[in-house]
Design a protein around this nucleic acid. Structure first.
Lengths: 155, 155
DNA sequence: AATGCGAAGGTCAGGAATGGTCAGACGGAG
DNA sequence: CTCCGTCTGACCATTCCTGACCTTCGCATT
């Protein structure tokens, strides 16, 4: 049975299809109103269906003229593989784990040699001296940079 | 939806473009009148969109024949400026600080609109739920992504 | 020169319009 | 019955915009 969350998910995905640039902007209150549900329901759908593991990036702003922008990053096969890898990064990762992923991405031509070196360097730099949650920070940094790269090849 | 503040911002930026010397002088009451808003709305736009962080200088004078002058600070060398901005990120940064930097980089053509949206989104998601050192994490993520971008234009 | 007035612009508190978060209710599958 | 995915409502945070009140400056009058 399709839950309301499923229905809203489908709706947003259709909008993304229609958009042709994989970006859709919604108004939380209005969307909630048209589906006759609580506004927070929209957040639930976004959290569970349009998170980064699934290849989406959400950007939002509060206040007058506020909005929620949903960006799909991932379309073809390369994207799918990279997206999967990004999803696999998880909450924390070791330096060795970073290396493994970088090698795979380099081999498949997603990252240049220079890219790999830079990413490794930046991660080293930014995690140096961090005493707690180093693996977590590493995961976040790697994911951030890969998301940025992923977007580029989709332009 | 574009708010009135956004519209006024665009208008002023267009005027700056047209000016060819990156200086534009406005009359607060008159501008407010043409946009049918309160004069203080103009101040709001100036404070939030044309502040020093975003690379503008505001000079004004009260009294009869008063004026507001908006000056866009020139950025001759993109590379140097970006490097300087990255340096300015420092150890920690607020969401607004991120925004200011992104807008500057966007205005000078270093980041595309999509880039900006993605970077904002990634940072929002990676810092969500982090209770301690959020500002620090934000700084690291932003720096990492900007370094990656900076490498690209130097290839 | 001193004073007074009108014409700018500045400040700030607060209301309205958005979106975010989180504890807990609810209900179906095991 | 217990667990897990849904869904809601109360409360919070952020951004926009206005109106009342304040400050500064030029100029005419005295």
């Amino acid at each position: 049975m399709a839950t309301l969350a499923d229905i809203i998910e489908d709706y947003i995905k259709r909008q993304l299809q229609k958009s042709h640039n994989s970006i859709v902007v919604i108004n939380r209150a209005q969307l909630a109103d048209s589906f006759e549900c609580a506004p927070s329901q929209i957040n639930y759908v976004l959290e569970t269906r349009f998170n980064k593991e699934r290849g989406y990036i959400i950007e939002s702003r509060r206040g007058g003229g506020g909005y929620i922008r949903i960006v799909k990053i991932r379309s073809d096969d390369i994207d799918k593989t990279v997206g999967k890898l990004i999803g696999r990064i998880g909450n924390s990762i070791s330096p060795k784990g970073v290396d493994n992923i970088l090698v795979v991405l380099h081999d498949m031509g997603f990252l240049s040699t220079k890219n790999v070196q830079l990413i490794r360097g930046v991660i080293q730099q930014e995690t140096a001296g961090v005493v707690q949650g180093e693996d977590m920070l590493r995961a976040k940094l790697l994911r951030a940079m890969l998301c940025l790269k992923l977007q580029e090849i989709n332009d």
